[in-house]
Amino acid sequence: MRWLPLAREECKALLSTKGVWLLALALPLWTYRPDYTAWAELGPDMTIGFVQYSAAFLLPIAAIALGYQTIVGERTSGSLQFVLGLPLTRGDVLLGKLVGLTVGIAIPMLLALGLVTLVGVVRFGLFSPLRYLAVILVTLAYLAVLVSIVVSVSALAGRAATAAVTLFVGLFLLLEFLWQMLSPMLYSRLTGTPVDPYDPPAEGGLFLLDRLSPGGAYNTVTNGILDTGNSAWHYSSVLSEIQPNVSSNALVVDTAFDPGTVPLYLHEAGGLVILAAWGLVPLGIAYLRFDRGDLV
């Protein structure tokens, strides 16, 4: 594992910066959001929902802010030539950066989530440890996927500013922040089928499109673990949608499809396949381009 020393140095460098710890400090403040509906439906497992809520918003910001310069910045400064002068392939560099950044972000994140977990146990009681562990593992996988996208864009971009704008607009705004609102309009344009988000048609393609973003796939899997409902929206929106006489624009499979009519590809576990694709495809493209490209 020739990439391991590079990953270790990348992790140490990240942990020595203030930015990663400031984001870790913000995580408990953003995460702790008690909700009466969530308490009624989940009980003590509401604490696990806090993990999902914070990860879906803060992890993309952390990955972009802390990783967008990881390769393009070193290419611009010339230090990448020194790194590649070591007995490392360019694939080793990509993998080392990916692992180092992921671990460097994960350590403060887990410490912050540990604080939120402790408060949740004190306030709301002991939750399901198996569900908690499963959500934490999926959250770490989601973080690795986000870092993979960031490292890939950094390897492909010619300038740091290009990488930053591409990631902020493409990954954060479009895919993570706005995707659930845009997907019904996009589906309507593609198929010609009118879509009212407050009364969506039971069409598998619509619900599949809704969960094709990394965050949507993550929410789908973690909602399945929490047993809140089959949806790409965060757990509190899903719980609100399934309440009697309540209508929202959250697309929830359970309220749109009759029992026994849900397509197999809408199973919550399918979100893992989508996450894997987001983690591997950009990295594969970056590897091919980075391996053949110039360093300047």
Rank of each mutant, 00 (worst) to 15 (best):
P129A: 07
G125I: 02
V122P: 08
S154F: 02
V135N: 04
R123E: 14
R131F: 02
L146T: 10
V119L: 10
L130S: 15
S148V: 08
L140Y: 01
L156T: 10
A141W: 11
V122A: 15
F127G: 12
L133W: 03
G120Y: 01
A141K: 01
F127V: 04
T139G: 10
T117I: 00
S154T: 06
V122L: 15
L137S: 12
L115C: 12
F124R: 07
V119M: 07
L115M: 11
L143A: 07
P129N: 11
S152K: 02
L156E: 11
A144Y: 03
V119C: 02
A155C: 02
V153P: 05
G120D: 05
A134P: 05
V151N: 06
V151G: 11
F124G: 13
V153H: 00
L156W: 07
V135F: 12
T117Q: 12
S148K: 01
L118S: 14
I136W: 02
L126N: 14
V122E: 14
G120P: 09
Y132S: 12
S154P: 08
L140H: 04
V135G: 01
L130I: 11
I149T: 07
V145E: 00
I149F: 03
V119Y: 05
I136V: 15
A155Y: 00
V119D: 07
I136L: 13
Y142M: 00
V116F: 07
V135Y: 06
S148D: 09
V151R: 06
P129R: 04
L126R: 13
S152P: 06
G125S: 10
I149Y: 05
A141S: 13
L130P: 06
Y142S: 09
L130N: 13
F124K: 09
V150D: 02
L146I: 01
T117W: 09
S128T: 12
V135M: 07
G120R: 02
I149E: 08
A155G: 01
V151C: 09
P129Q: 02
V145C: 06
S128F: 00
G125V: 00
F127Q: 10
L130H: 12
L146W: 03
V138I: 14
S154Q: 01
Y132V: 07
A141L: 11
V150N: 05
V121S: 12
A144S: 15
A155D: 05
R123Y: 09
V116P: 09
L146K: 00
Y142I: 04
L143M: 09
L146Q: 03
S152Y: 07
